[in-house]
Nucleic acid binder design. Structure first.
Lengths: 355, 355
DNA sequence: TGTTAGCACTCTCATCTCATAAGTGCTAAT
DNA sequence: ATTAGCACTTATGAGATGAGAGTGCTAACA
């Protein structure tokens, strides 16, 4: 059976209506509010047919219809009409990003918080992978107790640090020399490269072999995302959505978002080509819980990867709104980053500027 | 009216029973399980009297009695019998702390997680105040774009970093000189001291005046606790306690713990003299929500402040268990820190080793 | 052949009643 | 001071009931 235009229209109405009201949609309400000119019986026939096609389900015989995950997917692909943000919302974004501080961490927090506020869903964010970054600066600082502090900064100003052990006989001056040497060696290299050239690097080193190997170990550990790299904003927002009046759903949700590892799995694994990615519960993605949807966007601007952001919430999510917000935030970020680059050196490129 | 011994005994039974079962306690159950030898009518009289004294309340006339916050306070002060941890639990603590990594951050996470696991409540932790620490190392690292990265490490290995602006004409060598100079100047100073001596320090500086003032600004900002300094572990644990079958309570709880600022207020403001601190809802402490209790312990060992840890949960909390766990974790921490110091240099002191 | 009116059927939901069980407060006896 | 006994209160759960919503089906219609 094919999808006639009227079927599509009706499906769109059902999804729109259900997103807005959270109430199963009846044939009557469709003819009354949206599709005047046909009788409810006609709509009823179409609904039955859409149900057969797998787009709609009923909880019980007299309960109206509810979109299936498949329907949401189709809706997002073909039916959804994206809106525009209100002036107020646009202002809000601008306001939030106008902060003077250039700090990546603060920016990430702002972005995450803006998304959560504007969409009214819980927002998740993961900072860009250090893996792809190049090392801008690497230093070893003395601690004075047989350890040194390794600090690295990458091209995108991501910082990592750890304590490493140094030989007993190494004094502060030696350490400084080692620091300069190792720092110079790694400057400009990508973290991912370190692993590849590990043997070569190690073999080249006599004097600072031990320190060197500790540094490499540390660098290797930086490629894994840390708990702190995953940000969760506004978990309490779920209470604004009626599906979370059921304690079981809350329990499930809270359990999922409590595990940073789990969260990372959920928002990771993006296809870089696609800018906005929607995962709808029980879509075969085992990481996303059955009754949740996750919409994420990976931002990059001026050749910089700025992380992946998104919202997690019920399957009955306001996709048009969420996607609109994510797009607008993306634009704002882009102009922020480009604008800033222009102010300084205009070293922006277009290498990785999403499709 | 005074509290007879029998009244105390009965109050203790009621609180114990209610903590264990979450069911209002009846006169009958008391005489049957705990106080054989008296009739339920006698107990009933005592209960009525305890109610008059403000220790007990009833939801409705045939519903048994429930302890009031006042009763919990009295219970903790006078009636409670602390248990011992099981072998299994003790092993668990030891296991968790045997991690090789000496990193403060990991330690804090372990502690928080252990507390949450053993008590079955949500655990909160706040890292020690950088304010009281002395600066062990301060360095300025070049970024290459008109900024420098300031990194400090304190005596307790707390790290802070920020980007500061440097003058246009300052090259990497100048920066290194400035770094050494400023680093030397602040080494051994407490962060709190910086503020006091600010004017003097600034006036002494000609050449690096601007950098210096940026550094001081940054140092001042380190005294405020950051979001990352507040750790929340196991929020989903609340679902193991029947009071959180009510969605309103969950909502309230989640809203409170979602705000790091709020959390900080709740577990801050400890009296340093008291090692374990119990705040019971509606106790006049406006930060703690009405239907929550917070039990915290501030740990210090070998002269080091190791942060404040605790649990947040329903007023009907298993205080004996929680307090026992907190005490045992404290002991384990102490022996860990002392042990470690012995291994190395035995530079431990007894300056601040809580009573 | 597609559309529609009409109607029986199903299911939920709120309300009511009713009986039961639990627990208390009070009184009078010990 | 304690206790047995009993009336009183309230929660809880199990039907029963009726209203309301929505559907599926059938037969008539354009």
């Amino acid at each position: 059976m094919k999808m006639s235009d009227r079927k599509k229209k009706i499906l769109q109405i059902v999804v729109d209506e259900y997103i807005n009201t959270a109430v199963p949609v009846s044939s009557k309400s469709i003819t009354e509010k949206h599709l005047t000119g046909v009788s409810s019986a006609t709509v009823r026939n179409e609904l039955a047919s859409l149900e057969e096609l797998g787009y709609l389900t009923q909880f019980h015989t007299s309960g109206g219809r509810v979109p299936s995950p498949q329907a949401y997917r189709f809706y997002i692909e073909e039916l959804m009409q994206k809106g525009n943000l209100s002036e107020k919302d646009l202002d809000y974004i601008e306001q939030a990003f106008s902060d003077k501080s250039h700090d990546v961490e603060h920016l990430i927090k702002s972005v995450s918080s803006v998304i959560s506020e504007l969409t009214d869903y819980t927002s998740v964010a993961i900072t860009p992978h250090a893996d792809e970054e190049t090392i801008r600066n690497l230093s070893l600082l003395p601690c004075g107790d047989g350890n040194a502090l390794l600090v690295i900064m990458t091209s995108e100003r991501i910082l990592r640090d750890s304590f490493i052990e140094i030989p007993e006989n190494m004094n502060d001056e030696d350490l400084e020399k080692a620091s300069k040497m190792i720092g110079g060696l790694f400057a400009g290299k990508a973290l991912a490269e370190v692993r590849e050239t590990e043997e070569q690097i190690l073999s080249d080193f006599g004097q600072y072999r031990q320190v060197m190997s500790e540094v490499i170990e540390a660098l290797k550990s930086y490629t894994r995302p840390r708990d702190e790299d995953i940000l969760l904003t506004g978990p309490e927002k779920i209470f604004n959505h009626p599906e979370y009046e059921d304690i079981e759903n809350v329990k499930n949700f809270l359990t999922v978002i409590s595990s940073k590892d789990r969260l990372a799995d959920i928002i990771e694994g993006e296809d870089d080509e696609i800018q906005i990615n929607v995962k709808i519960g029980s879509s075969g993605d085992k990481d996303v819980p059955d009754d949740c949807s996750v919409v994420t966007a990976t931002y990059s601007a001026g050749g910089k990867n700025l992380g992946t952001y998104g919202v997690i919430g019920p399957i009955r999510m306001d996709y048009p709104k969420v996607i609109t917000v994510l797009e607008n935030v993306g634009k704002a970020l882009e102009s922020l980053v480009n604008g800033k680059n222009k102010d300084k050196k205009d070293n922006s490129g277009n290498e990785r500027k999403g499709k």
